[in-house]
């Protein structure tokens, strides 16, 4: 019973991450549902006392990766890389709509790392554990994700942020 309560409590978190990962609402909730199904069938593998959220995120990651493998990667790429006309922004204001569009255009592995760290506030170590990759991989994916975002968003300073020198 406690297990079920714990999982029910975490559904909103799973949905938030799935929405950011998958984009549209239906696809995101399908991802959550598949994750819950898989989590139940694999629940004997969950070690009591360990972080249930991290475990569920790992399950979701695996489900997500399997879905990506099942779908045609080229179609996926086309869908996620629309031509974006980039209007010039005043100053360094970050426009949410553009951030969202830019995140959609990241390769899935980089998007996952960025979301785990920036949205789920996981440490590099936690993100590495969730994704089942070394910490170095998390760091390099994150660096690449940020480089791409910088290139895509006028709100973020290009080239490592030289324009932000005024920020102490």
């Amino acid at each position: 019973m406690n297990d079920a309560d714990g999982i029910v409590e975490l559904i909103p978190r799973l949905r938030r991450y799935a929405r950011a990962l998958a984009g549209d609402r239906i696809a995101a909730d399908d991802l959550v549902q598949d994750t819950l199904e898989r989590a139940w069938s694999k629940f004997h593998l969950y070690r009591r006392g360990t972080d249930l959220r991290a475990w569920l995120f790992t399950v979701m990651h695996n489900v997500y990766v399997n879905q990506l493998r099942a779908s045609r990667p080229t179609a996926q790429l086309d869908e996620e890389m629309p031509e974006l006309a980039q209007p010039v922004r005043e100053t360094d204001a970050l426009v949410l709509r553009d951030l969202d569009a830019a995140i959609r255009r990241l390769p899935p592995d980089q998007r996952e790392v960025l979301l785990l760290v920036a949205l789920e506030a996981m440490s590099y170590e936690e993100a590495a554990g969730t994704l089942g990759v070394p910490i170095g991989t998390v760091m390099s994916r994150l660096a690449r994700a940020r480089e791409k975002l910088r290139a895509m968003l006028s709100g973020l300073p290009p080239g490592g942020g030289k324009q932000l020198k005024i920020v102490k």
């Binding site: 951030l99 979301l115 920036a118 920020v167």
Partner: peptide, 27 residues
Amino acid sequence: TQEDAEMKLISQGLHQLYDPVLDEPVP
């Protein structure tokens, strides 16, 4: 420092975009 500021911006943006999902009723 710049990278921290940048990550903070991204993080804030993501929270603004996706935190509303937390308040949606669970289907």
